[in-house]
Amino acid sequence: MEQLLQHLVNGLVLGGTYALLGIGLTLIFGLMNVVNFAHGEFYTLGAYAAFAALGLAGLDFTLALLGAIAAGALGGALCEVSLLRPLRHESIDTTMLVMIGLWIAMQNGELLVWGGVAKSIPHPFPTAPLVLGPVSLAPLRLFVLVVAAALIAASYLLIQRTKLGRAMRATFQDAETSALMGVPIERIHTATFAFGSALAAAAGALLGPIFLAYPSMGDLASLKAFSVVILGGLGNVPGATLGGLLLGVAEELGAGYVSSGYRDAVGFLIIIVVLVLRPAGIFARAERIG
């Protein structure tokens, strides 16, 4: 029982960042219809941006995080304008191939810049865990959980409550009618992709100090993000949030009670079950936003 609580808490920490990855991808894949295999590379970008800010420039964690988010948003905007905008009316397969190309290019770019050796990202938090009854939690992990929750809440507010969010949802439901309402469609595409990429980068900057930063770290992140999107249903932001938390907890439980070697397998097992039983996503009933 004590172990269960501990696993649940660890699962939430992991799941919070999966949710960030998933929300980012559900906007790009679910709403914009771009099968973004490079999503994980923005996660990697975030981790390296955090490494540069914390390890090289010696900034504090908050600034590093903001820097990583900005790097993700900027990289995403650049990629949308230069690669996706010219292909706006091409098929989903065409943009998917381009995103696979970007994935390979970015990953090799990271290898070139940072080398193949994994970097440990320094962080300012004490290593002694906080103990609360049966649960112990490293301050860094608590910070990750809190920041992830705050970013999820902020994303939700942006999408549901702001004029920009409303225009995003409208654009991906009916672009032509949105244009008739005066929405600058091209800018909305860029903003949405930048936003999704910034969330991936935030996840990378948050998990980077817990694990390590290395060029291929984005591969698994992409797969996890796709899993979360499938769990939650395409374009479903609350679904991606719950899906992310569920995947994180399931992995922790799998690692804890079965074998840590099966950590990643558990997640994919769930995906297979979901695809067989509820192919529209576990939360298909919940309203999609676009």
């Binding site: 004029k163 409303r166 225009a167 949802r169 409208a170 439901q173 009916d174 009618t177 949105s178 309402m181 929405v183 309203e287 999609r288 936003i289 676009g290």
Partner: peptide, 12 residues
């Protein structure tokens, strides 16, 4: 906009 509320449609 089918997935926007009536009020959101008006705001658009």
């Amino acid at each position: 906009f089918p997935y926007l509320t009536v009020r959101e449609n008006l705001e658009m």
